[in-house]
Amino acid sequence: MKLNGATAIVTGGCSGLGHATAIALREAGLNVALFDLNEELGSQRVAELGANNTLFCQVDVRDETSVSQALERVAAEFGDIHLLVNCAGIAPAKRLLDKEGKPAPLDGFQTTIDINLVGSFNVARLVAAKMASQSPQGEANERGLIINTASVAGYEGQIGQTAYAASKAGIIGLTLPMARDLAPLGIRVNTIAPGVMGTPMLLAMPDKVQDALTANVQFPKRLGLPAEFAKLVVHMMDNAYLNGETIRLDGALRMPPK
Rank of each mutant, 00 (worst) to 15 (best):
K2S: 15
L3S: 08
T7N: 07
T7S: 12
A8Q: 12
V10I: 15
G12T: 08
G12H: 10
G13H: 03
G13N: 06
C14E: 05
S15K: 14
S15Y: 14
S15G: 09
L17H: 01
L17P: 00
L17V: 04
H19E: 10
H19Q: 11
R26M: 06
E27A: 13
G29V: 08
G29P: 00
G29S: 03
L30M: 06
A33L: 05
L37A: 08
N38A: 04
N38W: 10
E39Q: 09
E40N: 08
G42F: 04
S43W: 13
V46K: 05
A47R: 04
E48K: 05
L55R: 00
C57L: 02
D60A: 00
D63E: 06
T65L: 01
S68E: 07
L71P: 00
E72K: 05
R73T: 02
V74A: 05
L83N: 03
L84T: 09
N86R: 04
N86L: 08
C87K: 01
C87H: 03
K99H: 09
P105Q: 10
D107L: 07
F109W: 09
Q110F: 02
I115G: 12
I115M: 11
N116I: 02
V118D: 14
G119A: 03
S120N: 10
A124D: 00
L126S: 08
V127N: 03
A128D: 03
A128N: 06
A128W: 03
A132W: 06
S133M: 11
S133Y: 07
S135R: 10
P136A: 03
Q137L: 10
G138V: 07
R143M: 03
I147D: 00
A150E: 05
Y155T: 02
Q161L: 07
Q161N: 11
A163M: 05
A166D: 10
K168V: 02
I172F: 15
L174F: 15
P177I: 00
M178E: 09
A179S: 15
R180A: 04
G186H: 02
N190W: 12
N190T: 08
T191F: 08
T191D: 07
G195D: 07
G195P: 00
M201Y: 11
L202Q: 09
L203F: 06
M205R: 13
P206F: 09
P206A: 04
P206K: 05
Q210T: 11
A212I: 06
T214V: 15
N216Q: 11
N216H: 15
V217H: 14
Q218C: 14
P226E: 07
P226I: 10
E228C: 11
F229C: 06
K231R: 14
V233I: 15
H235I: 13
M237V: 12
N239W: 15
N243R: 13
G244W: 04
L249K: 13
D250Y: 15
M255T: 06
P257R: 06
K258G: 09
